[in-house]
Simulated assay, not measured.
Amino acid sequence: MRPQTIQIYLPAGDPRGVRVAEITTRIVRVIEAPRSQLGEFVKTPEALQVGVYFLMGELSEAGLPRVYIGQSSSVGNRLAQHNQNKDFWNRVLVVISLTNSMTQTHALFLEWFAISEATKAGRYSLENGNTGARPHTPAPLEADCHEIHETAATLLATLGQPIFEPLTNAPTARGEKELFYCKGSGADGVGEYTTEGFVVLKGSQARLEIVAPLQDTARSRNREKLIEEGILVKQSESLIFTRDHLFGSPSTAASIIMGRSANGWDTWKAANGKTLDELKRQTVAPTA
């Protein structure tokens, strides 16, 4: 990570309307448009360019935002088609070149790489289905693509869509991670407290059954959706997390793991036995 200057331009002055984002020293631009204003975007010169696009939509059953990733030699025309035949999306983000130098070869590799990286990150529910085959790309163009992708990923995250950002925290300079543990009857969870909430790590074990008071509640329904989407899978006498999963709070994560109501601030503990509350909340003292 390094400091960067990002410019966001609002053509109509509306922060929820069309937004144009650039890193001031790069040639990549990301244009975001609500579906209701797609007609305005397709009339612009940028809509005639080669581009990679991201259709953003409503939440999946397990609460993950949905995305469809595509590319086109005339991105505006392709989006007009999707406006007719894809229902789930409500916003689109389009990656183009300021110098109009992106080719179809670039776009095909960027589409494949973006699907692969989004799948790896596990933040979004992909509507594409699978990554497909890696397209043949000459080495110089592939190097260009990695630079374009890096810039696009930063701009997408800045616009509120961290599609490629890891769920977990980066290791410290010594290669260490601050992990928290949640253990109980049939439960053995491992997770990280992050800037966005609490991430339960792949391989964590959740109790198979939930207690009666938790049945027919929002948390039990959330648990069922995680099972339906394959994020929680039955294995022996427990449920296993098949991938890292972000929860909005430590308590929600603990309740899913334990199969009962739980105060995550006290339930999640570091290896030294200190609670999440002691290490993260009590250290923030009010000023005099």
Rank of each mutant, 00 (worst) to 15 (best):
L48Q: 14
G197S: 11
G57E: 13
P65V: 01
K269F: 05
T44Q: 04
L38K: 03
L110V: 03
P138V: 06
Q37R: 13
R174P: 00
S249G: 06
E58K: 14
P34E: 05
A33V: 15
I256F: 05
E61K: 09
N128S: 13
I69C: 05
V52P: 03
E32W: 05
V18N: 03
V20C: 02
T158R: 06
G57W: 11
I6A: 08
E229W: 03
R16M: 13
L232W: 10
E142G: 04
K225L: 10
Y68F: 08
R35W: 01
V233G: 02
L159D: 08
N77I: 08
I23N: 00
I210S: 13
C145F: 09
G160A: 03
Y193H: 14
V211I: 11
N169E: 14
Q205R: 15
T25P: 07
R223W: 02
N90L: 09
I257A: 01
G186S: 04
G186L: 06
N128D: 12
E192Y: 12
L167V: 00
T103V: 09
R66P: 02
T168K: 08
T24A: 04
T283D: 13
G203E: 08
T99G: 03
T275A: 09
V200Q: 04
T154C: 12
E196K: 14
A170Q: 09
L276V: 14
A47G: 00
E229M: 02
E142Q: 15
L156P: 06
R174F: 09
T252P: 00
I96H: 01
R174A: 11
G264E: 08
P65C: 01
G160M: 01
F247L: 01
R260Q: 15
R19M: 10
P65W: 01
Q282A: 11
E209N: 09
A121D: 10
Y193F: 15
M258W: 02
G230P: 01
D266C: 07
T105L: 11
E111W: 03
W265Y: 14
V30A: 02
G197F: 10
S74L: 07
K43G: 01
E46L: 05
Q205H: 03
L126M: 06
L179Y: 12
N83A: 11
E228H: 11
V95Q: 02
W89I: 06
I231G: 07
E278V: 07
M56R: 11
V28I: 14
L59D: 11
E196L: 12
L55C: 08
V75Q: 09
L48C: 10
G160I: 00
P213K: 04
A33D: 02
T154N: 07
S255W: 00
T105K: 13
R134F: 08
E224R: 12
I31V: 14
S72F: 04
L48D: 12
Q81V: 10
D14Q: 09
L201Y: 09
V95W: 01
V18F: 00
A288W: 10
N128T: 14
P11Y: 02
E178K: 14
V30P: 00
R260D: 13
R207T: 11
R134N: 15
I257M: 08
R223F: 02
R26P: 01
L155P: 04
S116W: 09
